[in-house]
Computed example of a mutant assay.
Amino acid sequence: MLQQTSTQQKVRALLLSGIRSAVLWRQVGGKRRHLVFGRKKMVEQAQILLARM
């Protein structure tokens, strides 16, 4: 599965976007505890955004 070029590109893009998100999170003052305690709210917001698509 990982030998397919399209799959490799998707995995690479997801990894890079995850790293970029972590950097941006830290730059705006995000902390690990905010992720832990704010997880439910973030999941709810993600579901709302996905429902709009």
Rank of each mutant, 00 (worst) to 15 (best):
V28P: 03
V11T: 04
L24P: 01
A22F: 09
W25V: 00
Q45K: 09
Q27V: 03
M42R: 05
L49C: 06
A22I: 10
R52V: 09
H34S: 02
T7C: 10
V23F: 05
M53T: 12
R20G: 05
K10A: 13
L35E: 03
M42L: 13
V11C: 02
M53N: 12
L15K: 13
V36N: 05
M53W: 07
Q4H: 15
H34C: 02
L15G: 06
A46I: 15
L14T: 05
K31F: 02
G38C: 01
R32F: 10
S21P: 02
G38V: 00
R52L: 12
T5D: 12
T5I: 12
W25K: 04
L50C: 08
R39L: 15
Q4I: 15
T5P: 04
Q47C: 00
R32I: 08
G30D: 00
V23S: 05
V43A: 07
G29I: 01
G29A: 00
L35R: 06
I48C: 04
L49K: 08
Q27Y: 03
V28E: 07
L2Q: 14
I48Q: 11
V23D: 09
M42P: 00
R12T: 12
R12G: 01
Q47A: 06
M42Q: 11
S6R: 15
Q47I: 03
R12P: 01
L50P: 00
A46P: 02
F37D: 10
Q4L: 14
V23C: 07
